[in-house]
Amino acid sequence: MKAAVLKSFGFPLAVEEVPEPVLGTGEVIVDVVATRVLSYSNEVFSGERKYALDLPVIPGAGGVGRVRAIGPDATKLSVGDWVLCDPTVRSRDDAIAPDIHLQGVSARGEGGMRLQKYFHHGSFAERMRVPTENVTRLGELSEAEATQWSVLGTMLVPYGGFLAARLQPGETVLVSGATGNFGSAAVAVALAMGAACVVAPGRNEKMLAELVRRYGARVRPVKLTGNENDDRELMKRTAPGPIDCALDIMPPSVATTVVRAAIMTVRPNGRVVLMGGVNMQGGPGLELPYNWIMRECVTIHGVWMYPRDAAARLIALVRAGLLKLEEYETTAFDLDHANEAVEHAAANGGAFKLTVIRP
Score class of each variant (00 low, 15 high):
356 V>T: 11
160 G>E: 12
163 L>T: 09
61 A>G: 12
247 L>W: 04
170 G>H: 06
253 S>L: 03
357 I>A: 05
340 E>I: 13
221 P>G: 11
267 R>Q: 13
213 R>C: 02
231 D>Q: 11
312 A>L: 10
175 V>I: 15
307 P>Q: 10
179 T>I: 00
12 P>F: 10
336 D>E: 08
273 V>I: 15
147 T>I: 05
256 T>Q: 11
225 T>D: 13
36 R>A: 08
119 F>W: 14
189 V>P: 01
31 D>S: 10
217 A>T: 07
93 D>E: 11
338 A>I: 07
81 D>S: 06
349 G>A: 13
326 E>P: 03
223 K>V: 08
35 T>V: 14
34 A>F: 14
301 H>P: 00
164 A>L: 01
26 G>R: 14
130 V>N: 00
168 Q>N: 10
76 K>Q: 11
122 G>A: 12
15 V>S: 11
355 T>Q: 14
30 V>L: 05
240 P>F: 14
225 T>S: 14
94 D>I: 07
214 R>I: 03
58 I>W: 01
164 A>S: 08
241 G>I: 03
301 H>Y: 14
239 A>W: 07
51 Y>M: 12
60 G>N: 00
300 I>R: 08
241 G>W: 06
199 V>T: 04
332 A>S: 15
259 V>D: 03
163 L>D: 04
239 A>R: 12
200 A>L: 07
133 E>N: 14
88 T>N: 09
149 W>A: 07
4 A>H: 00
192 A>N: 06
70 I>M: 11
108 R>L: 03
265 T>P: 01
87 P>R: 02
277 G>A: 12
94 D>K: 07
335 L>E: 01
74 A>W: 13
1 M>L: 15
335 L>V: 09
294 M>S: 12
155 M>Y: 13
292 W>C: 05
20 E>P: 03
344 H>L: 06
341 A>S: 14
54 D>T: 09
311 A>M: 05
84 L>A: 05
202 G>R: 03
274 L>M: 09
315 I>W: 01
222 V>L: 11
224 L>N: 13
79 V>E: 08
308 R>Y: 08
44 V>A: 06
64 V>L: 10
93 D>W: 12
54 D>E: 13
218 R>F: 09
256 T>D: 01
267 R>N: 15
355 T>Y: 10
250 M>I: 04
228 E>V: 10
117 K>I: 00
257 T>A: 05
165 A>Q: 00
268 P>L: 13
68 R>D: 00
210 E>M: 09
